[in-house]
């Protein structure tokens, strides 16, 4: 079957690289995943690229916002208080 062959054939580096985000997501079908893993066993350059993709995701996950202002807490607490006072007034 042609389709099966396409899914399981050997990948070129450019094709492997295009699958790494999905590979990290665990979103590749089994044959495609196996093809990526075979490629990675044979290709140190792509292994490095995959590690860099993972490092990118890690760094993004630790990103702290630059200058998020102090929350307008007082104003929000006032709204919260008023809302609950009205609720109690309404139900009581």
């Amino acid at each position: 079957m042609k389709v099966l062959k396409w899914w399981s054939r050997e990948l070129a580096c450019r094709e492997a690289v295009a699958l790494f985000s999905d590979y990290i997501e665990g979103a590749l079908p089994p044959r495609r995943k196996a093809a990526v893993e075979r490629h990675l066993q044979a290709c140190a350059d792509c292994g490095r690229y995959l590690d860099q993709m993972r490092a990118t995701i890690r760094v993004l996950g630790h990103l702290e916002p630059d200058d998020v202002p102090a929350p307008a807490m007082d104003e929000l607490l006032e709204v919260f208080r008023r809302f609950h006072a009205e609720e109690e007034g309404g139900s009581g």
Binding site: D45, D51, Q52
Partner: peptide, 24 residues
């Protein structure tokens, strides 16, 4: 960065071990 058959011609250079600290 790839040849016509899709192999790396300009592969990624290794990143330093402390890459997370540097990039953070």
């Amino acid at each position: 960065r790839f040849s016509a058959d899709g192999a790396w011609t300009d592969p990624p250079s290794a990143w330093p071990d402390d890459v997370d600290d540097r990039l953070s």
